[in-house]
């Protein structure tokens, strides 16, 4: 079971328009999919007789402000413990309506991971049982990991205060 076989199988099953962006990063297969495919795709991988991607290692949000229409991303890290193969699945949604179906029905562990992605990136996981902030305070009105909220710039010139400047 190689990365190529997995990629070919997924493309054969879901079609080239749904599974694209296939590449290998340091031996790790990456595929990109669309919002409406992610739940069937994860179920398919879970129930596949040989692949058995039944462990959700991690779920990360990401923000690319320059990619118009695909600003926010979700990155699923799957692991097939039986075959010891890892797989990364990405999907991108527009920032105006960052709606992604939840996968808490398949993985109980996705609950807090999706809450974290909502908290920091504002991704709305539709169908999530309890989509509230998890690490930040509840009355925060923005999503701090988005790129439009920069940390203080280390090279800024305007702070010349002798005590608090750099």
């Amino acid at each position: 079971m190689t990365n190529e076989q997995i990629a070919q199988d997924l493309v054969a099953k879901f079609g080239e328009d749904k599974i694209y962006g296939i590449m290998e990063n340091y031996g790790l297969l990456n595929v990109t999919t669309s919002v409406d495919t992610i739940v069937p795709l994860l179920h398919y991988l879970y129930q596949h007789p040989t692949f058995k991607f039944q462990f959700l290692t991690d779920l990360a949000g990401i923000h690319f402000p320059d990619a118009v229409g695909q600003e926010l991303g979700v990155i699923y890290h799957l692991h097939s413990l039986e075959n010891n193969v890892r797989l990364i699945i990405k999907l991108y949604v527009p920032i105006e309506s960052p709606k992604v179906p939840t996968i808490t029905g398949l993985y109980a562990t996705a609950n807090w991971m999706e809450r974290e992605a909502f908290d920091f990136y504002g991704l709305i996981f539709e169908g999530h049982p309890n989509l509230i902030r998890i690490l930040n305070v509840e009355d925060m009105d923005y999503h701090p990991m988005r790129k439009e909220y920069p940390m203080e710039d280390a090279t800024r010139q305007d702070k010349i205060d002798a005590l608090f400047g750099r």
């Binding site: 991690d58 990360a60 990401i62 562990t109």
Partner: peptide, 25 residues
Amino acid sequence: YLVSDGGRTPYRLKFRRPCFIYYQA
């Protein structure tokens, strides 16, 4: 999980913290 865009800092760095994940059980 480190995403580098070729700069001096990571573009995105995600820590998979085992505690965070299993405490929800």
